[in-house]
Computed example of a mutant assay.
Amino acid sequence: MNVIETLEIFRLKSVLKTPYTFLCIEKVLAENYFEWINLKIVKHKESYHLVGKGHLQPIGCKQSYEIQAIFSPFFGGNRFESIKILNPKIEFHPKIHMYRNTSLCLYHPKDHFGHIPLFKSLQWTSEWLVKYEFFKRFGIWIGDEVKH
């Protein structure tokens, strides 16, 4: 393990000790960048989650989408976010970047060290929707892809 990985482990332990403060910062950052989402911090069992919904219609998209975001350091692993399209319902398809639970695959974890802030995931959600509408029209997924 190198020094950067060691520092990231200590940072994550700090986040887990003060999750409410961490989520407050993530909430302010996301709402500062995106007016379309309403977020709140909720206690779930013994942990906290940042949850929110909103409507998003990126430039170039023909329709508006209802988005649900759940963000928590207690999910485990490098991924703190779970972002889903609630309406219109998008079924899982192996050719689009989506997990079987219908949460969006916005990036390859090996390409990013540590956690991704929620505001970046929300930005990538807009890009995902543009690629999805392209897929609906032409049947191919545009952009980089890693098989997983």
Rank of each mutant, 00 (worst) to 15 (best):
K136F: 08
H148G: 08
K84S: 03
V42L: 11
P117K: 01
R100M: 04
N101C: 03
K53N: 10
I41K: 15
N101R: 01
S72Q: 06
F34M: 15
H108Y: 02
F138T: 11
S14R: 02
F75A: 08
C105F: 02
K89D: 06
S72Y: 10
H97A: 09
M98F: 08
I59D: 02
F71Y: 15
E145I: 00
I85F: 04
N78Q: 09
I59H: 06
S103D: 04
K89F: 05
L86V: 14
E26W: 03
L12C: 05
L129Y: 02
G143H: 03
E8V: 08
V28H: 13
T6Q: 04
F138E: 10
K147Q: 13
H49E: 14
Y65S: 11
K131M: 11
H148E: 01
F74R: 06
K84Y: 03
T102G: 01
Y20F: 15
Q57D: 01
K45H: 15
W124D: 01
Q57K: 15
Y20M: 07
I83K: 01
F34Y: 12
Y99H: 05
H93G: 14
I70W: 13
W36F: 06
T102A: 00
I90N: 06
L16H: 05
R100L: 04
Y65C: 11
K95L: 14
S72W: 08
V42C: 02
F74C: 09
I4S: 11
P19L: 00
L118Y: 12
P58T: 10
K62W: 07
C24T: 03
E31I: 15
L118Q: 09
E127H: 08
V146E: 07
Y99I: 00
L23I: 01
I85C: 07
H97K: 00
Y33Q: 13
E66W: 01
G143E: 12
C105P: 00
T125W: 06
F134P: 14
K62M: 04
K27G: 03
L118F: 10
W141D: 13
G139F: 03
L23N: 02
E127C: 10
P94Q: 15
V15E: 01
H115D: 00
V42W: 13
F71N: 07
G76W: 11
L56F: 10
F34E: 05
P94I: 15
P117Q: 04
H49G: 02
V28N: 13
K17C: 07
E31N: 05
R100V: 02
C24I: 03
S103P: 05
H148V: 07
